[in-house]
Structures are given as C-alpha cells and as structure tokens.
C-alpha cells in the first residue's frame, strides 16, 4: 500500500501494459560544437560517455556520417543516438535502393530528425539527445540543430549543452563566413579546450569531422595540448584559514 501513491503519481505517464519510457538518461555524451567554413561544415566532439558523474566510456564515436552529404553529431543519451543512427541508416539504405540518382540531403535529414524527435516527445517517450546536423549538397551548406522535444533551427555556428555557454561566445566573436579549413579547426580546438578545462564530463580525446562537396572525413581520435601549471593553481588553499 505504501507504493500506491508512487504508482498514482506516474499513472499518467505509464500505460496499463506498463511499458518503460526513458524518464532520464543513463550514459550521456557531452557538448558538440560545429561551424560553417569556406568549403563546408566542421564539427567537433569529445569521446567520453558518462554514467552519471562516472566517466564510464572513453571511445564513444558521437559524430557519424549520414549518407553522402550529411554529418550528425549527438550529445545526450548514447543508446538513443545509436537508435537514431539505425533509423537514419535505414532511411539512407531505402533511399539508395530506389537507384534513381536522387539522394537525401542535409536539409531532408534535419527535417526528418525534427519530426522523429517531436513525435517521440508527443508520445512522452523522448529520445534524450540534442542533435547537430551539418552537410553540403549542390553547393548549399547546411547547419542545424534539433533538441529532444523537437525545437529546431539553422545557424552558422552551433553548440550543444555546455558548449552553448562556453563555446558560443567565442564563436560569436571570432566566426566569419570565409574561415579556411585551418582557421576553422583552430577555432574549434579553442572551443574544445575551454570546454575541456571547464566541463567536468569532457575528456581529452576528440574527433573533428569535415564535410564538403567532396564528402565526409572524420579524424582519428587525438588529444589537445593543455597547461595546468598556472601559479594560481599551486597550493589553492593558501590563505583559506583552517582548511587542508
């Protein structure tokens, strides 16, 4: 009888068959940052997978290609992202089977994701992710974002989660339309370094991906150079009376 109030509280959300819905995420990925540059889109994400505050996985690929013209980056629940990749791969496969020379572009994939995310929120069974979709097709660059409840938009530079606080201000002051590939990578690395220093769930193992008219390239994992030897970091409790 003690649990009856608890059951009642959730009765609106759980149906009679008692199916489970994602009420909160388990294994989560941190920020994704992406920007438009001269020839296409650049996207960066670290490879950490957190189980609450535990760093549980350290080689999670959170940036994936979708068909020939698109690149997806995900933060949030990793398993939901893997399910989204199954939806997208099915979509791309089915598109290829028509063999009519047409193919889904980034705009179409983004629109599809928008509908999938919104439909799942309508069923009170959300996919717990914020997604970034970038791509180039027929000379048109595309960069957009979709959240777990279906909010969506396009922008010249986007960042999920913590990145919206830490990386966007940097991008707003330094981004411009004609960034070269090298400038773009440097700018993304600057953002990722700030995130690495300030976001506790970030790890120093990154992938940067590039998409242009020629296609997708996702880098091998690599680490950023960091510096922790600041004078102010030494003996941080000096002056704090009575502390360790």
């Amino acid at each position: 009888m003690g649990s009856s109030s608890e059951t009642k509280e959730n009765s609106l959300l759980s149906s009679e068959t008692g199916i489970q819905r994602t009420q909160y995420p388990y294994v989560t990925g941190s920020s994704v940052v992406a920007l438009k540059y001269k020839d296409g889109i650049l996207m960066a994400a670290d490879m950490g997978g957190s189980y609450g505050s535990t760093l549980r996985y350290k080689s999670v690929e959170r940036i994936k290609p979708v068909g020939k013209h698109s690149l997806i980056g995900a933060s949030g629940e990793i398993s939901d992202f893997q399910e989204i990749m199954r939806y997208l791969d099915e979509q791309v496969l089915n598109d290829n089977m028509w063999d009519d020379g047409n193919s889904l572009g980034p705009k179409e994939i983004h629109s599809y994701l928008t509908r999938v995310m919104y439909n799942r929120r309508n069923k009170f069974d959300p996919l717990w992710n914020t997604l970034i979709l970038g791509g180039v097709k027929k000379g048109q660059k595309f960069l957009g974002m979709v959240t777990m409840i279906g909010v969506n938009f396009e922008e010249n530079h986007v960042a999920t989660g913590f990145g919206n606080h830490m990386a966007q201000p940097i991008l707003r002051s330094e981004w411009h339309e004609n960034l070269t590939f090298e400038e773009g990578v440097t700018l993304l690395e600057k953002c990722m370094r700030v995130l690495l220093y300030r976001d506790r769930s970030a790890v120093n193992k990154f992938q940067i991906a590039k998409i242009t008219e020629e296609g997708v390239t996702i880098s091998q994992p690599y680490a950023l150079k960091t510096f922790w030897g600041f004078k102010a970091f030494e003996n941080p409790t000096a002056g704090a009376e009575g502390s360790w």
Binding site: R21, Y24, P126, V151
Partner: peptide
C-alpha cells in the same frame, strides 16, 4: 542511484 536529473519536460518556452 539518486535521481539528480530533472524529469522529462515536454514543453519549453522559446519566447
């Protein structure tokens, strides 16, 4: 595990 995450919120206000 203690629930530290907010519950699912189907609405947002985007102003």
């Amino acid at each position: 595990m203690t629930k530290q995450q907010a519950r699912f919120e189907p609405y947002d206000f985007n102003g």
